[in-house]
Amino acid sequence: MTSKSTGSKRITSQDVAKLAGVSRSVVSAVLNGTPGIGVSERTRENVLSAIRELDYHVDARARGMKTGRSMTLAAFGDTAHPLFMRLLEGMQRAGEAAGYHLLLSSPGRGRPGEARSELLELYQQRRIDGIVTLDDTSYADAQWAQAVREVGVPYVSVEGYAEAEGIHSVHADYRGSMETALDYLRANDPGLGAAPEYAEVFSASHGGRVNEAERQRRQGYEDGCRKHGWEPVVSRHRQQGGRVDWADWCRQRSQRKPAPPVLVNWSSAVPDLYRAARACGLSVGGDLRVMAADNTIQGDVLSVPTLSCVEIPYADMGEAAVANVLRQAGGEAGPPSKLRLPAVLKPGESA
């Protein structure tokens, strides 16, 4: 395995091994997930650090000829969706470290099942080595799961198959994220005597249906309230055409000073809330303390005041999904597993 040239010298895996203080087989194990060679997390980080310092890149064509692999993974999702783009960030990071390329595949209009089937055909043609899909949190298609098992393709669903067995999947800990948010709000205001209101935004296009992520969030909110001895307070808000009308809610809130904080499930609804609050004479971070249970649009630092939030770690989920697929390809993954990653607390000025 070789890399691009640096000056007149081509950087090899032997150079990486020397800098990291390990054998060449350990470098190979980190890059390929080689069965039978255990690598500690500290050693793995040393190898990855050496790879970055030397700007080492795997010669995918040479390795593909040697291993019979295409050195390509398929990423299935909607590129217009910000969550998928965050997922790709982590997938690319993990893929590059292992010398893999990503093939993007879209569900297409009205043909998601057909698009998925095409990925199975690509695997059988040895044009991809595995598949990662970003699914709705309620997704659990038994027919697709059966097809994956029959073909034997290394596969991970991100967010899907939360309650179904037989498929490797990576999830966010939505329930835990709400408890993290409530703990933060309580720590920020030790005298808080009533529960922060949970403003549950729902999409009109979904007919008011609640998916698995929102059920987990609601459960986490209720669990967290019980832990602090609070009575839960939940309001529901309709999002239509990407907008939420907070005017009446803010007018009612303007009559309650001081009032407990509000915890909004979707950060995409917060800009409308900020505007409505100011129209009612409420200062965000003062009269109205706001926190979001996600940071999908990455709007925390762009908001004024900056938005307090708990961020769902989609980039880390993408990285974990690729690592799992590569373990499957190397025969090391074991039985189908479910990995739940904690949300990341990002304090701001709004709460």
Rank of each mutant, 00 (worst) to 15 (best):
M1W: 08
K4C: 03
T6R: 13
K9I: 03
I11M: 06
L19M: 15
A20N: 08
V22I: 15
V27G: 00
V30F: 12
N32G: 13
G33W: 09
P35Q: 00
E41L: 12
E41P: 09
R42G: 05
E45L: 12
S49T: 15
I51H: 05
E53C: 01
E53N: 13
D55P: 10
D55E: 14
H57D: 10
D59G: 06
A60C: 13
R61P: 04
R61G: 11
A62M: 15
T67C: 02
R69S: 08
F76R: 01
D78R: 08
H81Q: 04
M85G: 14
G90S: 02
M91E: 15
Q92L: 08
Y100G: 02
H101I: 01
L104W: 03
S105N: 06
G108L: 10
R109S: 14
R109F: 08
G113W: 09
E114Q: 15
E114K: 11
E118D: 14
L120E: 06
L122F: 14
T133P: 04
D135A: 08
D141Q: 06
A142N: 11
A145M: 03
V148E: 12
V148I: 14
R149D: 03
V153C: 07
V156T: 11
S157I: 06
V158Y: 08
A164E: 14
A164K: 10
I167P: 03
H168D: 15
V170R: 08
D173T: 11
E179I: 13
L182S: 10
Y184F: 15
R186P: 02
A187I: 02
A195H: 08
A195I: 08
P196Q: 02
A204T: 11
A204K: 07
S205G: 07
H206S: 15
A213R: 13
E214M: 15
R215M: 10
Y221E: 04
D223W: 00
G224C: 05
E231F: 06
P232Q: 13
V233G: 00
V234S: 03
R238I: 12
R243D: 04
V244E: 04
D248P: 02
C250R: 04
Q255N: 07
P258M: 12
P260D: 01
S267L: 05
V270D: 01
Y274C: 05
A276W: 07
A276M: 04
A277P: 06
R278Y: 00
C280T: 00
L282Y: 07
S283W: 00
D287H: 03
D287V: 07
L288G: 00
A293R: 09
I297M: 12
G299V: 09
D300M: 07
V310M: 02
E311I: 15
I312H: 11
P313G: 06
P313S: 03
Y314K: 11
A315Y: 01
A320Y: 01
K338G: 04
L339K: 11
L341G: 10
L341K: 05
P342E: 08
V344A: 03
K346S: 10
S350V: 03
